[in-house]
Amino acid sequence: MPSGSPRAIADVMRMERENRAGGPIVRGFAGNGFRVEDTAYRALLLTVDRATEWSPPALADLDEAALGPLIADQPEFVLIGTGATLVRPPQALVAALEAREIGVEAMDSRAAARAWGVLRGEGRRIAAALYPLDA
């Protein structure tokens, strides 16, 4: 294969997401969940300094109490990964977080995991709640 071909270049180059801001980064997907460092999580809470396994309620029942560990540090906003597809979080939750001056961004869980890495790379003070990929 010629040395300039895409396959040869791919064999030589490895791209790793750099985490200049520190803290956990989702490095990939494992089954129906997420890989952070060497640990796989089915559902995940992320703060700027830790990743924690999560037993999420049904999305329709998501409330401040379920996100307690995330909002205690007053992040700029919370990414909510709603599973395989985008589902709007409960309006009562959005209103309660906005009353605390915490924004809410909902997207499917894969997109939320990717957004987490980009935003943390920028040093943003955020939090994330990621539902399983089969939810």
Rank of each mutant, 00 (worst) to 15 (best):
R42S: 12
V36M: 07
S55R: 06
T52K: 11
G103P: 00
E18L: 14
A72H: 12
I71E: 07
A111M: 15
G83S: 15
R7T: 15
R17N: 10
W116S: 01
T52L: 09
A113Q: 03
A135Y: 06
P2M: 11
L119R: 09
A96H: 00
A111Q: 14
A127S: 06
P69E: 08
A106T: 05
G4Q: 14
F77G: 03
M107V: 12
A51I: 01
L97N: 03
I126N: 04
R125E: 08
I126E: 06
G123V: 08
S109N: 13
E76W: 05
N19A: 13
T82P: 14
L70V: 02
Y41Q: 05
I102Y: 00
M15Y: 14
P6A: 11
L133A: 04
E101K: 07
A106V: 03
I25Y: 06
A43S: 12
A43Y: 02
L130H: 01
R7W: 14
R125V: 07
T85M: 13
W54C: 00
R124G: 14
D11K: 14
E64P: 01
E101M: 04
A30E: 15
A128F: 00
V118H: 13
I102E: 00
L133M: 08
G4D: 14
Q74G: 05
M15A: 12
P24I: 02
V12C: 13
Y131H: 07
R114M: 13
P56R: 10
A111T: 12
R100H: 02
A95P: 00
V78R: 04
L59V: 06
A92K: 00
A30I: 13
M15C: 09
A66C: 04
A10P: 06
E16N: 15
L133E: 00
G117N: 14
L79G: 08
Q74K: 13
L59F: 06
D61Q: 13
I9F: 14
W116G: 03
R50K: 12
L59K: 03
P69I: 01
A128I: 02
L45E: 00
V26D: 05
L93M: 06
D49R: 12
I71S: 08
V26F: 05
A58P: 06
D108S: 12
M13R: 15
L59R: 05
G123I: 08
A8M: 14
G68Q: 10
Y131L: 13
L45H: 02
R125L: 04
D134Q: 09
I80Q: 04
L59A: 09
G4P: 06
V48M: 08
A43F: 02
I102H: 01
V48W: 05
G33C: 11
L44D: 03
A99Y: 01
P56V: 14
L130Y: 01
L67W: 00
P56Y: 11
P24S: 05
G103K: 01
P89T: 00
G117E: 04
P6R: 10
R110E: 15
T85C: 13
G33Q: 08
P57H: 05
A51L: 02
A99E: 02
W54L: 01
E16W: 09
P132E: 15
R14L: 15
A92T: 04
A51K: 03
A128H: 02
R114K: 15
R17M: 07
R124V: 10
Y41L: 07
D38R: 12
